[in-house]
Each structure stands twice: as C-alpha cells, then as structure tokens.
C-alpha cells in the first residue's frame, strides 16, 4: 500500500522537480547559450530567480527535507519496509545512495553558480517573466507539497486503494 502510494506520489513530485530543473536549464540556455557546467560560475548573480528554482529542485532531488523529494523517498522506503522482505532493504539503500549521488551532481553546480568567481558582465539579467512564472510555481509546489502532505495524500490514498481492490 505504502509502496503504491510512494510510486504515485513520486510521479507527482518527480514531475514537478524534473520539469523545474529542465525549465531552469532551458532558461539559462535561452538567456546565455551556456550548456557546460564549467561556464556557469557566478550565474546566481545574473539569474537569481532561475538559479533559486534550480537549487530548490536540486535539493529536492537530493531528498533534503522538508521538500517534496524527501516525501517521495520516505514513502517509498516505508513501502519497502512494509513488505518485510530483506530483498527490498536493498531498495532503501539505493534510495539513500541515490540521494547522495544526486548531491554529487548538483552541489558543485549550486556552489559554482552562487559562490564561484563572477564571470558575467553586468548585474541582474534574468529570463522573461513568462518563463520565470511557471518555474516559480513549480518551486513553490515542491515546497508546499513537501510540507503539507495531506494535499496530495488525500487524493493518492484512495487511488492506491482503488488500484489494489479490483
């Protein structure tokens, strides 16, 4: 039951996190044409909103509470525990490991963007509002769905039940 709930909630949360990440990456490419991480030093000054969205989504991917990604991780781990089968312990390990792996990918980007030497001329120059708005909504969603879990679970628990009872 928890496993199924975790899968469903992860569909929702993952779609928010990944699309926020892609939208942020897209906004960076649109604005600067950069694709390489090594060229992103100091971009947090230039595009603060975009990078904030990126950081929130990345932290969520790492499974840092209290963001949505952590709730998915937690529920999936609970599902694995509920089975009581030792085989599924491996999946818990993988969940935790993947969180740490994500940290290896994402943390250097965040460090570079905010704390790296500034390589850009000029100050604030973020993407147009039409791009920022959806990203901000997604980032807000990541935070809200991480804290107020009843929002999603009130819909998910009946869905999981319906799937289990033919």
């Amino acid at each position: 039951m928890s496993g199924l709930q975790g899968a469903i909630v992860h569909i929702i949360h993952h779609s928010m996190m990944k699309s926020a990440l892609f939208l942020a990456a897209g906004a960076i490419i649109y604005k600067t044409g950069i694709r390489g991480i090594d060229k992103m030093a100091g971009i947090g000054k230039k595009m603060p909103v975009t990078m904030l969205v990126f950081s929130i989504a990345a932290l969520s991917m790492m499974g840092i509470p209290p963001l949505a990604g952590f709730i998915s991780k937690w529920t999936l781990a609970m599902g694995a525990l509920e089975t009581g089968e030792p085989v599924f312990m491996v999946s818990i390990l993988l969940l935790i490991l993947s969180g740490i792996m994500n940290a290896i990918y994402f943390v250097p980007i965040i460090i570079k963007a905010y704390f790296g030497a500034n390589e850009y001329e000029g100050g604030y120059d973020d993407a147009p509002p039409s791009m920022l708005l959806p990203m901000m909504i997604l980032a807000l969603g990541i935070i809200i769905f991480g804290i107020f879990t009843n929002l999603s679970f009130s819909a998910i628990i009946p869905a999981a039940r319906a799937l289990l009872e033919p």
Partner: peptide, 17 residues
Amino acid sequence: LIMHLIGGGILLMGILL
C-alpha cells in the same frame, strides 16, 4: 555536506529500521 549527508543517510536507515 557530504560527510553530513552520509551521516544523515545512516541515521535515516536506523530510523526506518
């Protein structure tokens, strides 16, 4: 951060178990 995330991961496993 990495050290603390590893510690946190171990703690999380302990809590779940």
